[in-house]
Simulated assay, not measured.
Amino acid sequence: MDIANLVAIDTHVHAEVSCCEPPDLFGKEFDEAADKYFGTVLKKGRRPTIPETIEFYRERKIGLVMFTVDCESQLGRRRIPNEEVARFAADNRDMMIAFASIDPHKGKMGAREARRLIEEYGVRGFKFHPTLQGCYPNDRMAYPIYEVIAEHKLPAVFHSGHSGMGSGMRGGGGLLLKYSEPIHLDEVAADFPDMKVVIAHPSWPWQDQALSICLHKPNVYIDLSGWSPKYFAPQLIQYANTLLRHKMLFASDFPLIRPDRWLSDFETVGFRPEVHSLILKENAIDLLDLRAPASLRSIPGHG
C-alpha cells in the first residue's frame, strides 16, 4: 500500500458482486432485508462490483481491506471466490489489501485453503461472521483455521453484536445473535495470542464486553464499522479517546454504510483531534504491518 498518499484506510469493505461467476440468487431475501435495514443506496439497481468499489475508493484516496463472507454451510449460498478478491488486490496493491473468508465448518479443509490463500495469493487476513456462519467463534472446529492464521501472525476480523443480516425477516431469517456476543472472542484471543483479533462493529448490546476484552488482550482491536459514528455509545468514544486510542480502526461496512457518511459524522461526535489520524490510518498500518520491510512479509505468487 502506498500509505503516504492515502488519507485513510477502511478496514471493512465487502465484495458484493463477482465478475467471474453468475450471481447466486439463493438467499436474495437476506440482501433485500439488509438493504431495507440500512437504507442502502443502490446504483444501477444492484450492489457494486469489485472494480466499481475499487474505483469508488481510489477517487477518494482511501485504502481498503476487502473480503467476502463464506456462510455456505448455514445459508447454502455460494460465496464470491477468495481468489477473485486477491487478484484484484494484487492489481491494485497501492491501495487495496485482500482478506479471505472461510466457513469454520470446513475445518481442516478450511485450514488447507487458508494456507494456500496466504502462500499463493498473498491474502493478509481473514473475516468470520459467527451469526451468518452459525457457530460460536470459540468452537474447536474453527481452530485448525486459526492455527494457520496465527502461524503467519495475520489478523482475523469477527462480526460482533446485532446483525443487520436477517433483521426484520420472519424469525430473523433463522439467524441467531447469540453467536456474535463478544465474550466468546476472549477465549479465541487467549488461545491464539499471535493472531490479531478484530472485533467488528460497535457490539451492541454488548459494547462493554468488547471494550473489556480489547483492554485486557494486547492482540485485540475494535473496528468501528456498520454504524454511523453519531450512534456510537458514549463509552466507545471515551475509550477511543483514551486507553484504546491505538486499537480503534476506521471501518465503514461498505456498501451498507458508505465512508463519506461515516467520515462526516466522525468529525462531529466528540473524537479528540489527536486521535483522528490514529483511527483513520495509523492503527490500520500497525494492524496490517504495513511498515515491515517487504522481505519480511509473505510474497504473493500473483501480481
Results as ranks from 00 to 15, higher is better:
3 I>N: 04
3 I>D: 03
11 T>C: 14
15 A>E: 09
25 L>Q: 08
29 E>N: 12
29 E>Y: 12
30 F>K: 00
35 D>K: 00
36 K>G: 14
40 T>P: 03
44 K>E: 15
46 R>G: 00
50 I>Y: 09
50 I>F: 04
52 E>L: 05
54 I>S: 02
55 E>D: 13
56 F>D: 03
57 Y>I: 05
58 R>H: 13
60 R>P: 02
65 V>D: 04
67 F>N: 10
68 T>D: 11
72 E>D: 12
73 S>V: 06
75 L>T: 12
75 L>M: 15
83 E>L: 10
83 E>D: 13
91 D>I: 01
96 M>R: 02
98 A>N: 04
102 I>V: 09
111 A>M: 06
126 F>Y: 14
127 K>V: 15
129 H>D: 09
133 Q>V: 09
134 G>W: 15
134 G>Q: 07
135 C>S: 13
135 C>E: 01
137 P>L: 03
138 N>P: 07
140 R>G: 04
140 R>Y: 10
154 L>T: 07
155 P>V: 11
156 A>E: 02
157 V>M: 13
165 M>S: 12
169 M>W: 09
173 G>F: 04
173 G>Y: 01
173 G>I: 03
177 L>P: 00
186 D>W: 13
186 D>F: 12
193 P>H: 05
195 M>Y: 06
196 K>Y: 07
197 V>P: 00
201 H>R: 12
209 Q>W: 06
210 A>P: 09
213 I>L: 04
214 C>I: 08
214 C>K: 07
218 P>S: 08
224 L>P: 07
241 N>H: 08
246 H>L: 07
248 M>H: 06
250 F>Q: 00
254 F>G: 02
256 L>F: 15
257 I>L: 14
259 P>I: 04
262 W>M: 12
264 S>K: 15
273 P>Q: 09
274 E>R: 04
281 K>I: 07
289 D>N: 13
290 L>F: 10
290 L>G: 06
292 A>S: 13
293 P>I: 01
302 H>Q: 11
